[in-house]
């Protein structure tokens, strides 16, 4: 869906980049705000009132909302491409760990997985409406002090059944975005939950979301030409019953996978 030739894009981007970036950002944010209020809030309200499984209904709506978000992004940023293989869309019942490049990463994974949960910074749960949406979607606070402790307990008690029924839990174990593509230190949380639920661990690598929305910048890059790509590095089935199983070893294995240089594609960093 790119109405412009490469030379036309190059010309526009060289001359008009600040304006194009601003236009893309306004367009995408308009969808994010007005699209939510006008198109999706009635659906969320209907799900809240009528859905038998409210959590699942909210996850499905989030999934659709962010598919729409990236559809709009493709319109305003016509040079970039997407490559998400079917084997990734078919992942079920797993704790998914992924590298973290941009604020877009969680949105990408929500748009890929219809049934999903994730860990969200606790402070977001205090934001009016948005915090309530997070709770209703079954997302998990990163810390469990005060009133959020009950949310954490409830989520952990039901997580095993949730994963067994086909849901996924995705987590960015670095906790923060990488500024140079290198892998930061990993938090143990994802691996502990996998052990708690006796769940397989799927390791994903995401590429180029930082080219679309660069850390430290407020505007989308309307001239991005890279391919947003998600690659499955491994599906690990740890022997949790084994006396020799250790979370630290599982983490080391995942870290080693994430640090392995990725396939060379347009604009993909070799780490």
């Amino acid at each position: 869906m790119n109405p412009y030739s490469k030379s036309e894009q190059h010309f526009f981007c060289r001359r008009l980049k600040p304006l194009l970036d601003l236009g893309a950002t306004v367009g995408i944010w308009t969808y994010f705000t007005l699209g939510f209020v006008v198109l999706f809030s009635p659906l969320y309200l209907a799900a809240w009132i009528t859905a038998e499984n409210r959590e699942l209904a909210f996850q499905r709506l989030n999934h659709k909302f962010y598919r729409g978000f990236f559809f709009v992004a493709r319109i305003f940023i016509p040079g970039h491409r997407w490559q998400i293989p079917d084997d990734i869309r078919l992942i079920r019942s797993a704790v998914i760990v992924c590298n973290h490049l941009s604020y877009l990463d969680p949105l990408v994974l929500i748009s890929v997985f219809e049934r999903h949960k994730t860990i969200v910074k606790s402070s977001f749960f205090k934001v009016p409406i948005f915090g309530r949406m997070l709770l209703l979607s079954g997302y998990i606070p990163s810390a469990s002090e005060g009133r959020l402790s009950a949310v954490m307990i409830e989520n952990m008690e039901t997580m095993k059944a949730y994963l067994a029924s086909g849901g996924n839990l995705f987590i960015f174990p670095e906790g923060t975005r990488s500024r140079d593509g290198s892998i930061g230190s990993l938090n143990k949380g994802a691996f502990k939950i996998a052990r708690l639920c006796r769940a397989p661990v799927v390791v994903l690598r995401i590429y180029n979301t930082d080219k679309l929305f660069e850390p430290g910048k407020y505007l989308f890059n309307a001239c991005a030409t890279e391919t947003i790509r998600v690659e499955q590095l491994a599906r690990i089935h740890p022997d949790y019953q084994s006396d020799t199983f250790a979370v630290s070893e599982l983490m080391a294995r995942v870290r080693s996978l994430l640090e392995t240089p990725g396939e060379k594609t347009d604009g993909v960093k070799k780490s």
Binding site: A143, K192, L196
Partner: peptide, 10 residues
Amino acid sequence: HEFDSIDAIE
């Protein structure tokens, strides 16, 4: 010891 809420639940 980095004992967190997930450990606490376990």
